[in-house]
Each structure stands twice: as C-alpha cells, then as structure tokens.
Amino acid sequence: MPKEDDKRLLNLLAQEKTKNYGFELLVKTYQERIYSIVRRMVIRHEDANDIVQDVFVKVWQNLDNFRQESSLYTWIYRIAVNESLRHLKSRKVKIFSSDVDVQKHLEQLIDNPLHFNGDQLEAKLQKAILKLPPKQRLVFNMKYYEDLTYEQMSAILGTSVGALKASYHLAIKKLEHYLDIY
C-alpha cells in the first residue's frame, strides 16, 4: 500500500472526530488480505473470522503505540501472523497432542466443501502444504499466494531475507516431493 494512503489513514485515526471513520476505512482496506493469510493457515472460516476480528481489535487498542517505523500493513500483517500461529499452537495444546494431529485435522477440513471448494488438484496441493511446519507454511503462503516480496516478509516476520529465501526454497522442494512432480 502506498505510504500516502497510510498517511491519510493515520491522519484520520489521530483525530478524535475522524478516528472511527479512519478505523472503518483501515478495516475495509486490509480486511481481505488479512483474512486471506489467516484463512490459509487455519482453514475454517469460523476460526479465521475470530482471528481477523481479534487482529483488528488489537490494532484499535494499540493505535496509540504505533510509531510508524513500519508500514501499517506490515504492522497489521504481523499481528495476524502471530495470532494465526498462536491459534494453531493452542489447538495443539488443547485438542491435539502434536503438529501431525493438527495437520490431519486440517486435511480433513480440506475434504469438506464447506471449508474448501477447489478441485481435486487444488485439494492435493493444499494437503501437501499442510504437511509443512506452520512457520514454513506461512512463508510459502505469503510468497506463493500473497505475492509478498522477501523484504516485506522480512519486515513482517522479523526474519532475514536470506533465511526466508532458504525456507521458501525448502518448502517448494518438499512440495515437489510430496506431490511427486519433477
């Protein structure tokens, strides 16, 4: 998102009179992208909805602390990423005993048209992606589906560009192996 738009939003958010309008505009601006990355991580719409709402509530609650060292998008995206990972971790702790159990559960959701309505090939890819560890899955989704640059990903995840390239490379290689395509 261009910096000018960020500036405009922040100006609206800074004034009491326009704060509510500015926030509504901020949600409208970012909701689909934030939802998309969260949904790909948690698969179920209901979970994604809860997380997205929590993300924007946190944004609202912490607007005063936002010092504009990063872009609004990076900041919001980072909250979304952390909330998604936290959700997966809490599922592992509360319901399942391991990452494998969580992965199996998510794979079952892919087979349910309520949660995923792609064709067989797409479902196959999604199931392969679910085999990746959560953070690597996140890196893959951010690059492959969201088309983020490594620099943007680095700002969001606080990981070096080099490490992200390596992680993405490894993710692609694993997927090729899982899907048996060479």
């Binding site: 509504e24 949600v27 409208k28 909701q31 689909e32 939802y35 998309s36 949904r39 790909r40 698969i43 719409h45 909805n49 997205v52 709402q53 048209p113 309520l114 949660h115 995923f116 309505n117 792609g118 064709d119 090939l121 797409e122 196959k124 890819l125 999604q126 492959y144 589906y145 692609i172 997927l175 090729e176 899907l179 395509i181």
Partner: peptide, 22 residues
C-alpha cells in the same frame, strides 16, 4: 507448481462477509 496447480483461492467465504466485517 503454478502451471500444475494454479494459485486460485478456493476457500469459500459467506456472502456479504466482508461488507459486514467492519
């Protein structure tokens, strides 16, 4: 990967979801 599987978003979202979300 892209030519074989595409990049489509096939996660269904309830109608009007984004209109109501804010």
């Amino acid at each position: 990967l892209e030519s074989r599987f595409g990049k489509k978003n096939s996660f269904p979202v309830p109608e009007g979801y984004f209109a109501d979300l804010p």
